[in-house]
């Protein structure tokens, strides 16, 4: 069953047709990758999914409900979490506090006025945050300032924060961009583990073919704002249209 349905989505920036009639359906509990050369409209598509941009035409349905016109925090509360190209974490806060925030958001909703409760007495939240840090293998860093960590650790924390909300759909925007090989491999292992152990749907946008082919169940190739082909990784590898899009007409 499709958890995310994108139908005829188009987006135009002035004279540039960034997206034209994109149709995409992501099945539940699979990992769906969206690849394409620079300027293919991958990030525009992602921004349309999470409420940062509103497409000119078409519809985006998550679990049978439209996400269009909703604010980012509302879309997140529906069960969509997003990992950014550069890790977006709370740099001034400690790692533990970072991990507590999404759990507070899940427990208390989008806004809670509780200025007289003590944060260090919220045992249920702290317990869950500690457990998630344990899962992410970063329990020893819990009192560190998040900004002081390496990029790989920041990414790990960000993914952990997203997972602690128990989202149904995890969107990843080039999760290994700008990472060293070792960090990339760690991230791939982490994502594989998440995919195997949890009931979660993953949609991933990626440049790095190594990452895509080690994770994806299905791949959509985007070129010039429209989907070129959608198939399993094995079929995509040798597809003539994909080679054409990536390498130019002559290939």
């Amino acid at each position: 069953m499709a958890i995310l349905e994108v139908k005829d989505v188009g987006k135009r920036f002035g004279g540039l047709q960034a997206l034209g009639d994109v149709n995409l359906s992501v099945a539940e509990n699979t990992c769906h990758a969206i690849i394409g050369p620079n300027g293919a409209g991958k990030s525009t598509l992602l921004n349309c999914l999470i409420g940062k941009l509103i497409p000119d035409t078409g519809s985006v349905m998550f679990d049978g409900k439209s996400v269009l016109g909703r604010k980012p925090h509302e879309i997140n509360q529906m069960g969509i979490s997003r990992v950014f190209q550069t890790p977006e974490i709370f740099g001034d806060l400690t790692v533990l506090e970072n991990m507590m925030i999404p759990i507070f958001a899940e427990r208390d909703g989008a806004f809670a006025l509780n200025p007289l409760k003590m944060a260090d007495k919220q045992a249920d939240v702290i317990e869950r945050a500690e457990a998630m840090l344990e899962d992410m293998n970063m329990a020893d860093k819990r009192h560190m300032h998040a900004a002081a960590m390496s990029r790989g650790d920041k990414r790990r924390l960000e993914i952990g924060m997203c997972l602690s909300q128990q989202p149904r759909l995890l969107l990843l925007d080039e999760p290994t961009a700008g990472m060293a090989r070792a960090d990339t491999n760690n991230t791939i292992d982490l994502l594989k583990q998440i995919k195997d152990e949890r009931d979660i749907t993953i949609a991933i946008i990626e440049h790095d073919m190594h990452v895509v082919f080690s994770l994806a169940d299905r791949i959509t190739v985007l070129a010039q704002g429209t989907p070129l082909v959608e198939d399993t990784p094995d079929k995509i590898k040798g597809h003539p249209k994909v080679r054409e899009a990536y390498l130019g007409e002559s290939a």
């Binding site: 925090h73 997140n76 977006e88 709370f90 740099g91 001034d92 909300q165």
Partner: peptide, 16 residues
């Protein structure tokens, strides 16, 4: 403090 540090992440964590 989260507002001061990263409003983007805050919104995408389901907080207004």
């Amino acid at each position: 403090r989260a507002v001061k540090t990263n409003q983007n992440r805050m919104n995408f964590t389901g907080l207004n």
